[in-house]
Structures are given as C-alpha cells and as structure tokens.
Write a protein that binds this DNA or RNA. Structure first.
Lengths: 344, 344
DNA sequence: TTGAAAGCGCTAACAG
DNA sequence: CTGTTAGCGCTTTCAA
C-alpha cells in the first residue's frame, strides 16, 4: 500500500526493473522462480502499477470514450450498461461523454483519442465527432470508432467506413406497422423522433413500405415530427386528438414517447386499445408495466452494447473487420396496447 | 493533425520545449510575443497535447471514477448525467464502473486511484470499495472519495470521514408517510429496498417516526423487504393483496417499485387511489406519466450530481472540506395515486 | 523571460 | 532467461 514503484521493488529484490516488469506483465517470459519471487514481493509490498507510466510507454490507454446525446435515456442506459461490462471484461475502462446533442461537446469528446485519453470511440450520434476542418485535412486519420444504432452517412464520413452496430430499423418498423394493419387499422398516425436522425428516417421508411405494400395510402398529415421523449409523446398526442380526422392507431417511434402518448390518451378518457391502439419502439424495461402493457419492438440491448465493444477492440487491435455493419435481431412484442380497429 | 509533439514544435520555432509547454499551459508565464507565436504555430500544426505525458509528469489524471451498482437505474442515470456535465465543466472526465453490487468489481474500480487511472472516487454504494485488508493496513490512505445518497458507516470507514451528498431520507419519508396518515390511512404497507442499504433503513425510520408520532402502531407484518426494482414492486404487491388484512396504502421506497406496484394492483382490478393509495420515492421522469400519476418525493437529481463533483474536486485539490455532509432539499410531490382512506 | 536538463514509471529493444 | 539502457511526451526546477 506504500507508494512503491517497479524500481524500488527491483532494488529490494536485487534484480532489474525489466525482470519485475516482465514477471508482472508477461509472466511467461520469465522463469517460474523469478515469477513467483517477484509476484510475492509485489503483493507483500502492496505494489500497485502506475498505469500512466505504462500508458505513456505503450501508447495505449485502455480507455474507450462513449459519446452519447443523453446518458439518462432509458434505452441508452441499458446499452451503456452492457457496454461497460463488456469493456471491463476485455480490460478496458469506459469514459462517458454526454453531449445533449451539442456539437461542441461532441467534438471535445471526439478529440480525446487525439489527446491520448482514449484508444477508441463508441458514438451514439449520427454525426462524426470531428470538425469538418479536421476531416477535410488529408492528414486526417479516422480513429477507431464504432457507431451505435445511428447510421453515419458515408458521404459525411468522407469515404471512411464507419462500422455500425444496429438492428434493422426498416424491417422492424415494417413488422410493427404490419401488425397494426393486420388488426384492421388504416389511419395510423406516427410520432417520429428527430427527423435528422437516421433511425427515425428508417423507421419511417418501414412504416411507408408496410402501408404501401398493403395498398394503404401514406397520409402525410398523419406523420407528426417529434423527439424521443415523454413530453413529445404527450404533447403531440393531444395535437393528434384535436385533428379533424382521428387515427385509430398511433405509432410512437420510441417507448418513452409511447408512454407520453398513453398518458395523454388516458387524460382525455380514451380507452386503449378499444378506441386507439398504440405501439412503441425499444422495449425498455418499463414497457411491460405500462397500462396497458405496450406492444413494441424489442431491441437486443445487451448484445448491441457487447458487439459495439467487441468490434471496437478489434479495430483498436488492428484486426481486419470482416463486417462493417453488425445487424442484430429484433423482436416484435405484442402486448395489450394494440387491438382491432374499432367500428365507427 | 499530423502527430506532432512539443519537441518538434519547439524545434520548428527554434525555441525550447519549456517555452512551448509554458505558452500552452501557463500562458501568463511567457511574454505576449512568445505566447502568440507558439499558439499560432500549435494551431497551424494541428498540435494536440498528449495528456499521458502530462499526467505522468504531474501525477494528475483529471479522471473521476464513479462506482455505481446499476447505471441503468433511472434515478441513478439522472444523477450520473449531472455528474458528468459538472465534471466536464471543471475539466474532469468521468469513468464509470457498474458493479451490479458485486464486491469484487467494487474493489477493482476502487483500485483505480491507486493505479493512477483516476484522481478520485464517487461512490453510490454504502460500502467502501477497498478490501478490509487494505483498510486495516496502517499505511492505508483514503483516496479522495465522495459518497452519494448512501451513507457509509463511520465504523466501517475505520474512523475516516467520508463526505456524503444526500437528501434527508428520514425526514422525506416521514413527510410522505404523514401525507398518507393525513388522508386517514392507518394500515400502511411498506415495500423496502435492500435492507442493508442505509437509504432504506433511513426511510424506514421516517415511516416509523411518522406512525408513532401520530399514535399509530407500526405493524411489522406490513413491512415487506424488497429491492429498488420494478419486479419487486409487482411481486410483493401480489403478496400484499393475498394477506388476510389488506392495507389501504402502500409506501414503495422507490418509483420503479411503485410502478411495479401500480401494475400489480391494476392487474387485480384495484382502483387507485380509491381502493388503495400508492406512493413512491425519487420522482423519476416517468412518475408523472404513470397512471395514476405518482405521489412521491422529488430528489434534486441535478444538484446531487453537481455537489458530488464539487466536493470531490475540492478534496482532490486538497482544500479543507467544511461540510463532510451535504444535505440537499427534497420535495413532497402530491399527484393522483393517493387519496382518502376508503370506508370499509 | 527563456533555456537546459532532469525526470514521472513503465516497457521494450538489444545484449549477454 | 535476465540485465542494460533508452526513451514515451510532458512539466518543472534551476540557471542564465
């Protein structure tokens, strides 16, 4: 516990610092006797390696920086948890950068690989965390980076391949919409996320595909632009209820929005799903406890987090990435918030 | 953007590395001319300081490690968000260690100050993240550490003062219970958190104080040991409903538990608050969207996070801590899940 | 105000 | 298998 270093340890044992270092970090490179001797002495002396020294020497921090718009978003925090666990198992620590969607903060955090505070980046945004200026420079080297859930446009990435871990949002959304169509719904409103977010665009595509392939019209006035928040769900639902022609189903592009939606509906005495059906997206842990329990798309939160880290570490280790895009399976979870289209 | 160092920069300018370092890190220690010259050159060359070098030299990482049982807990993730923002503003990065309550992981993360990966610790657990062995050693030095929300027993801390940022759990719980009593409730069940957690113990105390001071008996069979989870809320509520003598109110020691409770109640066709009143604790963002909207204690999430960081940095900076315990104000939020005791 | 030089603690050639 | 030695990039005395 005393603040002893490798040097002191070596002196105490009458051996070289190299041997101490090896015995501790590359045990198979020294004799059994040496290994034992050093390891016991180290334990006895309460030796704790100073990682900064090693980092400086090896140019590896064993840190990963996670750049995320909102740590406290329920879906995100599930992924984060898995991320952190996987990283820890692989000997990495996780630094968090909550950006609140602010560009400057994204860039600050994106810079942490350059300043050697982290070896790689996991990014939950659809924008790369670098200035256009930096990216334009021909000396620009893309640091190890994995994109989670939000697709970064290749054009924006300037031709760089940005590995992505995600589900098939289009397909998932199509299935969810189809479920509603199968129940007889025709007028299906949508509360989207931020329209600049690819996940929203893709979910919208899925919705449109499902409608069209069932011969149903895509009614633009039923598409409401929102955000992935409770508030948006509540506010926009009220707007929907005010519309001249009411939909019989509402597709919320995330579960938090769906909860806000359910809330507004109940506040105005609508019965769900008798009057209006509601679906969400994500299957956050609360979804099954909503009243009514929410029909939604379950995303494999744990696997997303795990894969992000695995892929990132592969890149850091300079391994060839076979798949620049990992698409994980989702699952349609039918609960009690959806029912047949009411007769009018 | 090219990988240039302070050395190269100095050479290019025909000056010493010391001047470059000073111009960049201690601008007031050099002449205006020098400062300008270096700063322009640095920007032009796309110089990015290698923080590892500085860290090794100064023995400061500017990292804080946050040790927390569950990052994805909604209450925690709110605090975390604020934590991270405050730290960033103060020039610190935040490392996260999710322990799942596992002792070994706590210790691994607690060790990160020793191994110079962080300068201080914010701990959400009621246990110190060090081995008993370490703590017993007389060479043990307590690293900068702040405890959040959970009180660490002085005895356990071996006489060390462990600064704490929290609300007054006893008082909050008393007020919440009193609210129920004021509504005429006499048989008030409690679903606790983990009984080893001080926050639970304190909330239980508050409950008992309120009962006693109103001349109401504390009925042991109404105190159900649970955890701060949705599942506990749901499972234990069913148990409560099965009891011979049913309570008319249920005090859940966290909002997630309360949601599980509401769920179970509705599943069994109880009307809230007509048949049974329910209260939670924390006021997570979902609470007002529950149906019915939840009566609860609002904790000042943002301030808790902020204060934790402020106090910790003070300790890191070697400042005298005036207050080893920061108690932040809570607020009783009365919504729709509580009502008068039903006639029987 | 600036420069020279000495390390922070560790790892990794290279020799032996 | 082990020791010698040279730094990683930065800050910080100390001297000029």
């Amino acid at each position: 516990m005393s603040d002893i270093g490798i040097k002191q340890l070596a002196k105490n044992l009458g051996i070289s610092t190299a041997s101490v270092s090896r015995a501790l970090s590359n045990p198979d490179r020294v004799s059994t006797a040496m290994r034992k001797r050093v390891q016991t002495a180290a334990k006895l002396a309460g030796y704790r390696p100073n990682k900064m020294g090693a980092s400086l020497r090896t140019s590896k921090t064993r840190n990963i920086i996670v750049i995320i718009p909102d740590i406290s978003d329920t879906f995100n925090s599930g992924v984060i948890r898995s991320l952190e666990r996987t990283a820890a198992n692989r000997g990495y620590s996780v630094l968090f950068g909550d950006t609140q969607g602010i560009r400057e903060l994204e860039i600050t955090y994106g810079d942490m690989v350059q300043t050697r505070q982290a070896d790689g980046i996991i990014c939950f945004s659809h924008r790369l965390p670098f200035t256009d200026e930096d990216m334009a420079s021909d000396s620009f080297k893309m640091p190890p980076l994995v994109n989670s859930c939000e697709y970064i446009d290749a054009a924006q990435a300037g031709g760089h391949i940005v590995p992505l871990v995600t589900i098939d949002n289009v397909k998932a959304s199509r299935e969810l919409t189809q479920h509603l169509i199968d129940l007889g719904h025709i007028d299906i409103a949508v509360i989207t996320g931020d329209i600049s977010s690819p996940s929203t665009t893709q979910r919208l595509q899925g919705y449109q595909q499902a409608m069209l392939s069932s011969g149903l019209p895509v009614q633009q006035q039923l598409i409401y632009e929102g955000t992935y928040t409770l508030e948006a769900g509540s506010t926009i639902t009220k707007e929907i209820l005010l519309a001249k022609k009411r939909p019989t189903a509402i597709f919320c592009m995330c579960d938090e929005t769906a909860l806000g939606c359910l809330y507004a509906l109940k506040e105005h005495n609508f019965s769900i799903p008798n009057d209006i059906s509601v679906v969400g997206f994500d299957d956050i842990k609360f979804a099954q406890y909503f009243s009514p329990a929410l029909t939604t798309i379950a995303q494999p939160v744990a696997e997303i987090g795990q894969q992000c880290v695995e892929v990132l570490i592969d890149i850091i280790d300079g391994k060839e990435i076979k798949k620049p895009m990992v698409v994980l399976p989702h699952r349609l979870v039918i609960r009690d918030s959806t029912g047949p289209r009411p007769d009018r």
